[in-house]
Amino acid sequence: ESETFDVELTKNVQGLGITIAGYIGDKKLEPSGIFVKSITKSSAVEHDGRIQIGDQIIAVDGTNLQGFTNQQAVEVLRHTGQTVLLTLMRRG
């Protein structure tokens, strides 16, 4: 069981404050995608409180990250504006 949710964030001096990890899993058993690996102290993400380590980032400002490499996803996140809309999925 999984839930998908949107989080809109405004960057602070730390930026968004997440590091991400790309993961290619076994299609049947484990998900592939871009996941939140860590959250920086005092960052926008930590202050917001809704995003957790292990959440999958589905889209950034409407750009679907399906099939993106870790590096491609980093580039998408790097080129966002001051306000960012993240679409995430959390597995229950």
Rank of each mutant, 00 (worst) to 15 (best):
residue 54 G to H: 08
residue 14 Q to E: 10
residue 34 I to G: 00
residue 57 I to V: 09
residue 9 L to F: 09
residue 43 S to H: 06
residue 29 L to R: 14
residue 35 F to M: 02
residue 6 D to G: 05
residue 75 E to G: 07
residue 48 D to I: 04
residue 22 G to M: 10
residue 19 T to Y: 03
residue 58 I to V: 13
residue 69 T to F: 04
residue 84 V to W: 00
residue 88 L to T: 02
residue 46 E to Q: 11
residue 18 I to M: 12
residue 51 I to L: 06
residue 4 T to I: 15
residue 84 V to A: 06
residue 81 G to S: 09
residue 35 F to R: 09
residue 3 E to W: 13
residue 57 I to W: 02
residue 47 H to I: 15
residue 85 L to A: 13
residue 41 K to M: 06
residue 29 L to F: 09
residue 11 K to M: 05
residue 38 S to W: 05
residue 92 G to S: 13
residue 55 D to E: 01
residue 78 R to M: 12
residue 84 V to S: 04
residue 85 L to Y: 08
residue 39 I to S: 02
residue 80 T to E: 01
residue 78 R to Y: 06
residue 23 Y to F: 11
residue 73 A to P: 01
residue 24 I to K: 14
residue 51 I to G: 04
residue 13 V to M: 15
residue 19 T to I: 08
residue 22 G to S: 15
residue 51 I to V: 12
residue 17 G to K: 00
residue 11 K to R: 11
residue 3 E to R: 10
residue 67 G to I: 02
residue 78 R to S: 10
residue 66 Q to R: 10
residue 8 E to C: 12
residue 38 S to D: 10
residue 36 V to R: 01
residue 11 K to I: 04
residue 78 R to H: 08
residue 89 M to D: 05
residue 52 Q to I: 06
residue 68 F to M: 11
residue 87 T to G: 04
residue 18 I to S: 01
residue 79 H to R: 11
residue 1 E to Q: 07
residue 6 D to N: 15
residue 24 I to C: 14
residue 86 L to A: 00
residue 56 Q to M: 04
residue 44 A to V: 12
residue 23 Y to Q: 15
residue 18 I to F: 15
residue 40 T to F: 08
residue 5 F to S: 02
residue 13 V to N: 14
residue 86 L to C: 03
residue 48 D to K: 08
residue 65 L to D: 00
residue 91 R to A: 09
residue 19 T to C: 08
residue 60 V to T: 02
residue 37 K to T: 08
residue 56 Q to K: 08
residue 21 A to N: 09
residue 60 V to P: 00
residue 16 L to R: 04
residue 74 V to D: 14
residue 69 T to W: 00
residue 79 H to A: 15
residue 5 F to D: 02
residue 7 V to T: 04
residue 58 I to E: 02
residue 68 F to N: 06
residue 55 D to I: 02
residue 65 L to V: 13
residue 86 L to F: 08
residue 42 S to M: 11
residue 80 T to F: 01
residue 15 G to K: 12
residue 86 L to I: 07
residue 4 T to L: 11
residue 53 I to C: 10
residue 82 Q to S: 12
residue 30 E to T: 15
residue 26 D to F: 09
residue 28 K to R: 10
residue 61 D to M: 00
residue 71 Q to M: 10
residue 88 L to W: 01
residue 1 E to C: 10
residue 19 T to N: 11
